[in-house]
Design a protein around this nucleic acid. Structure first.
Lengths: 191, 191
DNA sequence: GTCTATAATAGGATAGAC
DNA sequence: GTCTATCCTATTATAGAC
């Protein structure tokens, strides 16, 4: 059997780019074929269930990346502020400094929304819980911590939308920079 | 000439629903035909340039609604807090309490993004300027006011995304409820 | 102003050669 | 593992009757 032109992970990575740029409906097999250099038939060799499977793997890979680089480190030892700053750097990488859209956003629209709803909710839940846990460590009450963790997600997603709409990464960069202060405001480690 | 089955504005309203639910690429003429009860050919009678013109008019109508119900009233006489509360009510109506996605979000993705980029940026600019103006009236420095106005947009958009992803309107409702306090915090009228 | 019919193209998916 | 060729369906768009 001939060696693949691209390792599977590289293929998934390029498909991720296509979906992030065009959304689920706009991510046609033609575009995917072009982005990977593989014919449509070859894509079906990698992903027998077609487009839906592609989106599933793209989503899973993104989830794994976040788990490793953003969520996991929040459980490490260390001061809350340092962990939140590290989270900010991870998110900046993940979203390419604000240039790349969020899959959870794009894949929650229309027909794709129903397909991936559970995966998306689970991902959001995990990151939200991890942030909340850091904030309780920092001295916030559980309710306040949970609420602020959700606010963090809201602000990051909103900044991505506004950055995309304004065609400027400035809102995203500003939001990320301010994130640790905002989350820790009033906590025992903040003063 | 026979009377139209639906007034044009009613047609545009139903088409708006389709785009808001499915995004630009997912808003097919079949769905639009079904939503309006008009055949595809009739849609081309209303909108000779097809789907792109439909999205243009949908966007224009949404912009006009916002101008009248959200942006305009911000220039009326009255205390800043009252105006921001009224803005919140208008946005709650506009986004159906968090159930409906934002056109500026959906139409900034993929190919549609390039088509409507200028319109979208202009809309964002107008609402941001109107909010900033209320905040300077409330005693904030122009820079702080502009920054907070952008934060308002970010938070509202983010709440819509998270509400959609979580399939719960709670984040949106909470964000709207907290909006006036957040925007006015530290201003001379806040204490 | 709306319709049926139809063109032309693009989309998702599969068969089978190499 | 990749390709060309093909199928079927959906999509955008138009022509022309009523």
């Amino acid at each position: 059997m001939p060696a693949p032109l691209l390792p599977r992970d590289e293929v998934v990575q390029r498909l991720t780019q296509v979906i992030r740029e065009h959304g689920y409906d706009g991510a046609t097999l033609s575009r995917m074929s072009q982005a990977t250099g593989l014919g449509k038939a070859s894509l079906y060799h990698y992903f027998p269930r077609g487009k839906e499977q592609i989106a599933e793997e793209v989503l899973a890979r993104a989830g794994a990346w976040l788990e490793e680089h953003a969520i996991g480190p929040l459980s490490d030892a260390g001061p809350p502020r340092a962990k939140l700053e590290r989270l900010g750097r991870a998110l900046s990488t993940f979203y390419a400094g604000g240039e790349s859209a969020c899959l959870l956003d794009l894949l929650s629209v229309g027909g794709a929304g129903e397909m991936f709803s559970e995966t998306i909710k689970a991902s959001l839940g995990r990151i939200e819980a991890a942030i909340a846990s850091v904030l309780t460590d920092a001295g916030l009450a559980p309710n306040a911590a949970a609420q602020r963790a959700e606010e963090a997600l809201i602000t990051v997603q909103g900044a991505l939308v506004i950055s995309r709409a304004k065609r400027s990464t400035e809102p995203f960069r500003r939001v990320l920079a301010e994130l640790p202060d905002r989350l820790l405001a009033g906590s025992e480690t903040a003063h």
